[in-house]
Design a protein around this nucleic acid. Structure first.
Lengths: 153, 153
DNA sequence: CGATTATTGATAACGGTTTCTCATGAACGA
DNA sequence: TCGTTCATGAGAAACCGTTATCAATAATCG
């Protein structure tokens, strides 16, 4: 069993993780969260990451995100509007996509009960696009801010 | 590594697997394929299933299907029209859903290159609906076995 | 400060899927 | 039918994300 702590303690590791999610602005896998939070909490271990992700998810601070083709669970901050995700097939980062195609209900076959849906876009993120120099490996949230306007196929 | 056979032999196991996919009409995991094909090929082993799924996928007969929240790869027959999937959260079977919500392109953020998309519906299949009215079952031979997943504390 | 105890970090263990190994059996061409 | 060689089946082993273990550390409060 798991004994429930009488009080939740505020540790530097946990706040470092939260900062990592805030600055990333996209769903993170445990390993990604570790990489991003470690600079803020030296010595941070993967076990602590898993523990805190679970704790924060239980508190409603984080929300688990499952994506096709990748078994590892990701987490993102709760409280965001309905959105979906873009999965870069090159660097395997996942970005948030505002909006929703709608028209979901008509797809549901007779006899099925719809409880939710997920839309995942696949392709290349700006940093991984072939037409651009890939000198900058995507490691932070910065790549979503590309202003290059390139008509895609 | 792997040596490529000079000739592809037609085995009872392989045709049994294909029949399983044809009669199922939905994406199957290796274990599901094994369960459905075993009655057609006694003694069928899981290793053979994996080998043939890979071979058939390489031949373009089967196509891998990845779904959120489930790490195991599924396969379905190639040559079908564009469609998506309905994932029953109770029995964890996956069904095909004709059609597509469309309106995908407008979702793509600037700077991203879209290469594909996946829409997954979640909910309950007819066999798992709380109501006892099971007059409309999925066309497949659904084994309504609810696999218990490890509960989280 | 000092006691209490939640939390941490390193690592072993876990669980499930997939692949490998290899002796046996089956397909196919000659 | 025979012989060659690919395919099979059973189990071992690899793989990998996640969780458990446990001594050490640090947060909280009187």
């Amino acid at each position: 069993m798991e004994r429930k702590p009488a009080t939740e303690r505020k540790t530097s590791q946990r706040s470092a993780l939260l900062k990592a999610f805030e600055s990333a602005g996209r769903p993170l896998r445990p390993q990604e969260a570790l990489a991003l939070a470690r600079p803020l909490a030296s010595g941070l271990g993967i076990a602590t990451v898993y523990r805190n992700l679970r704790t924060l998810a239980g508190q409603g601070v984080l929300k688990p995100v499952h994506l096709p083709g990748d078994s590892t669970v990701r987490y993102e901050l709760c409280g965001k509007a309905h959105h979906h995700h873009f999965h870069c097939l090159r660097c395997h980062q996942v970005f948030e996509v505002d909006g929703c195609p709608g028209n979901i209900e008509p797809l549901v076959p007779k006899g099925f009960v719809l409880e939710g849906h997920e839309v995942v876009l696949y392709g290349q993120c700006p940093a991984c696009r072939p037409t651009r120099r890939k000198s900058e490996m995507p490691s932070t949230k910065s790549e979503t801010k590309s202003k290059k306007k390139k008509p895609k196929s």
